[in-house]
Amino acid sequence: MTAGTSIYAKNLTKKFGNFTAVNTISFEVKKGEIFGFLGANGAGKTTAMRMLTGLLKPTSGEATVCGYNVFTHGEQIKKHIGYMSQRFSLYEDLTVAENIEFYGGIYGLRRNDIKQRSHELYDRIDLGHARNSLISAIPLGWRQKLAFMVSILHQPEIVFLDEPTGGVDPITRRQFWDLIYETANKGITVFVTTHYMDEAEYCGRVSIMTNGIIAAMGHPQELKQQYGVATMNEVFIKIARQ
């Protein structure tokens, strides 16, 4: 592992009884990289992500995230990463401002910092007018952008995004990726899963999991050349059908 590495995994494995969900996967993600973590349903993506975010102990192998060992320092990892998923991100019965305060508080930010970062957040995604609206009352696209901004409120070293754009309209989906690019440009590492194969093209590198292993990894352009196809969708289908 070299300096400037955000995520390091070597032979990382998770078994549930006789079933090996993640089978000796190895990879490194550099600081500030946008890393796409792709795979078919049931390929082991969620299990791998749960290990990397300190939620699940691996069976064997090694891994460090932000320099912390996933076996021994799960709690430290949780403090240094951001996480957002399509399914759950914000509290629907709290307002926009309350959600920001809540997450800021959880991550131990001081009141003044929360205030200042809230203003920056409102400006960036143009949401100041809705600060007192309940999350349940704002459109899904805004919600997802807000959830992302909240997940990086504490300026983590890495942000994990689990299908962040599922079901979002095409314009908002692209605005979302603008935010991802800006974040990566600031040096925050982005680890993202998606079912939209055009979004795979936006990643610096992608890995594709099938049956618990990483079947392919590289820059989207390299993978398309390697498999002799024009789009990442075709790469994905070729690998998943092997």
């Binding site: 795979g39 078919a40 349903n41 390929a43 998943a240 059908r241």
Partner: peptide, 10 residues
């Protein structure tokens, strides 16, 4: 096909 991978969708 929501939340289903590209292969199953096809």
């Amino acid at each position: 096909t929501t939340g289903v991978d590209a292969v199953s969708r096809t």
